[in-house]
Design a protein around this nucleic acid. Sequence first.
DNA 1: AGGATAGGCGTACGGCGTAAGTGTGTCAAC
DNA 2: GTTGACACACTTACGCCGTACGCCTATCCT
Lengths: 207, 207
Amino acid sequence: MPLTRDRITEAALRLMDAEGLEAVSMRRIAREVGVEAMSLYNHVEDKDDLLNAVIERVMQEFPFPEAVDDDPIVYGRRLAHCWRNLLRAHPSVIQLFGERKHSGASVDSLRPMDEALSALRRAGLSESDAAQAFHTIGSFIFGTVMMETGQPFGNGEHARAFPTGIEAELPNVAACASFLAECDLDAQFEFGLDLMLEGLRAKIEVA
Amino acid sequence: MPLTRDRITEAALRLMDAEGLEAVSMRRIAREVGVEAMSLYNHVEDKDDLLNAVIERVMQEFPFPEAVDDDPIVYGRRLAHCWRNLLRAHPSVIQLFGERKHSGASVDSLRPMDEALSALRRAGLSESDAAQAFHTIGSFIFGTVMMETGQPFGNGEHARAFPTGIEAELPNVAACASFLAECDLDAQFEFGLDLMLEGLRAKIEVA
DNA sequence: AGGATAGGCGTACGGCGTAAGTGTGTCAAC
DNA sequence: GTTGACACACTTACGCCGTACGCCTATCCT
């Protein structure tokens, strides 16, 4: 089996899904495909190039919904779920987005973006508002998935160990602690999505 | 001037603000404070410990607004801006949040969170809804700042070079391209914040 | 005075990305 | 059938990284 750019990209993705981004080194990828590290450079310019290829690959497997002939807001909600699922399937790509410019986006990797913009415009938004709404919802999706997977604030095994003696100093954190720690991630996502889509509907009705 | 944990933490933060997270190495921090790398370990357990201390320090300088006696939604909006400003001032901490668990949160670092939850509850949200809204808005803020600083989709020097021949394949991206690329980041943030806060107001009125 | 302790320093190990050079197997042209 | 070119894997080596381990000295308590 010959070594190819695709085999390398796939191995890198598999590795980072399984063991996290910090496990991804050229030497380790090489071992994974049964080769020495420097051989990778015959198919890849550098590690950066490889990681961009990984992003590209992930974007290409974007799981589009089958049906399109819907209320555009409903379809937009479906697209949002697709984004979330994709990112949850490959949590490390979020870190990649955070660290790199991802300057070389291909047509294929922009197709999901086009689809989302299309839905927003069909819903009645101007080009400018569609762009803003896309950014907003996109940021929200990235942020939630990042929080789900990195858990900056809560959601350890079952309940986060907040520092003791909290009730006096942080009454609101204490009161909401159980909801912050044990919240259902799907419900959480739905809550935020509703907030934004309702806001959008209101904005459209005004116009 | 004796070497202390604080001096080390400060140097690390200064370094990562100035040159990015990848420039932060134990050897480099040591050089920065005029010491050999291994001396740092007298004050810091490990690099992880140090980075957590940096996060902690950033949280402690949270720039609370002066006035509190407002419409809670207005106050919430102000808090959101404070969060954004803090994260924009130290963009690398977002990467830190993406990579680590940040398991040891102190009381001080949770105070901004308490303040936000307090505003949401005063606005009339249940404890559960306040927790959800906090997560939603927090995710949005993290996401926007991440996109602003990492620019995964656009906003290069002036306009991103989308692949050529886009109009046919990606009509919506093409149509919105100028708005995606040149958008005013502040206006963008306001747009999203409005969307969510309007959604919240609607939710509160129903109850 | 003497011993403990704190807090510096030096060395060393295994891993990293990758520049540069070495070998080998395939295949076209003669 | 020989030769040359080329693709592609391998080897070596450099300067980084985090940090285990041990040494050295200055300070302070008794």
